[in-house]
């Protein structure tokens, strides 16, 4: 059996980590075919979605989600967009995150619930859960999944994002912590999950960009970004989330302070498990709404969201 190629710091210095990853985790798909794939992700921000004290404005958050869905699926009506994702007959598991320091905002769960009800999904056929998914009948019988959680730095995965959020779908989560959690994508190939995920949402309302201590949390490193990152491609959504944390760390510390571990699992999910696009140059990021911390470019309740273009590879000025 051929030895897996070692990925070193020099691969990142050369900017060839993606190529190295392809060699290290060979796939059955040609590089040419992979290079053609593109993904679309929506980043929407609103200066008014949080109060000074950090409380979530539920109505504005709901509007942000609606706007993001319409832009993502290029629909003029919110419900049309949702109907493209979920059928009324679906049994929908909404995989949230219950980590007590930074759970999925209840207001975001409420916004999703409202739209699922609007689509016609029966109340009994939807459930929100995290650690109990393996014992939740809705999840066990699900025909559709929605993946929603806050984005944060993670001690062993580099980034706690949508890919990582499915670790509760296996009975032995710690078994996936090896090699910087590189094999998280494998979980997405298991029958309980495979092919069911219709939407991935990273809550970037108050992301955590650095951590320490037993619970890997320090309030100094949480900031009010007031955004949502939304897409159907979990890899692309996580790649944008990881990039956001990276540029924030560099801006905050005044030096290129890498994530605690390179989020290899995102690249592996692309190159080995073909779950989506990890290359930022192949991600079409649609930026909507409030873009600069000192500048609100739209009326949060009445105006329409302004769309701005991004640079290839997503620079700090694209995201911060």
């Amino acid at each position: 059996m051929k030895e897996a190629r070692v990925i070193t710091r020099r691969d990142f210095l050369r900017g060839t980590a993606g190529v190295a990853m392809t060699v290290a985790f060979p796939s059955g798909i040609s590089a040419t075919a992979q290079a053609k794939q593109k993904a679309k992700v929506v980043l929407i921000r609103n200066a008014e979605v949080l109060t000074v004290g950090g409380k979530v404005h539920e109505e504005i958050l709901g509007q942000m989600l609606d706007e993001a869905l319409r832009a993502l699926l290029e629909e003029s009506e919110t419900l049309q967009a949702w109907h493209r994702l979920v059928k009324r007959s679906d049994v929908v598991g909404i995989k949230s995150n219950a980590w007590y320091k930074m759970p999925t905002p209840k207001e975001l769960e409420a916004a999703i619930r409202k739209r699922l009800l609007d689509v016609g999904v029966a109340e009994k056929n939807m459930a929100f859960d995290d650690r109990g998914v393996l014992h939740n009948s809705v999840f066990l019988n699900s025909t559709a999944l929605i993946n929603v959680r806050p984005v944060r730095t993670h001690h062993w995965a580099g980034v706690g994002g949508c890919l990582k959020n499915y670790i509760m779908f296996v009975p032995d989560p710690s078994a996936y912590h090896g090699e910087a959690c590189s094999d998280l994508g494998k979980i997405w190939t298991y029958p309980l999950v495979q092919g069911k995920t219709r939407l991935n949402i990273l809550s970037a309302l108050q992301p955590q960009f650095y951590g320490r201590g037993a619970h890997f949390f320090d309030r100094r490193y949480v900031w009010p970004y007031k955004g949502l990152i939304v897409g159907t491609d979990p890899v692309a959504v996580d790649a944008v989330g990881a990039r956001l944390l990276q540029v924030k760390r560099t801006a905050y510390f005044g030096e290129d302070r890498a994530l605690d571990v390179p989020p290899i699992h995102i690249t592996v999910a692309d190159k080995k498990y073909h779950l989506g696009v990890s290359d930022l140059n192949r991600i079409d990021l649609i930026k909507l709404g409030w873009l600069k911390n000192d500048q609100d470019i739209r009326n949060p309740l009445k105006g329409s969201y302004v769309r701005e273009a991004c640079s290839p590879g997503l620079t700090a000025s694209d995201l911060l």
């Binding site: 897996a4 070692v6 710091r9 990142f12 062993w156 890498a258 605690d260 571990v261």
Partner: peptide, 15 residues
């Protein structure tokens, strides 16, 4: 090597 990589990434394997 996992801890080393968290402070200074050298390689994904324990070289």
């Amino acid at each position: 090597h996992v801890l080393l990589n968290q402070r200074y990434f050298i390689a994904n394997q324990n070289i």
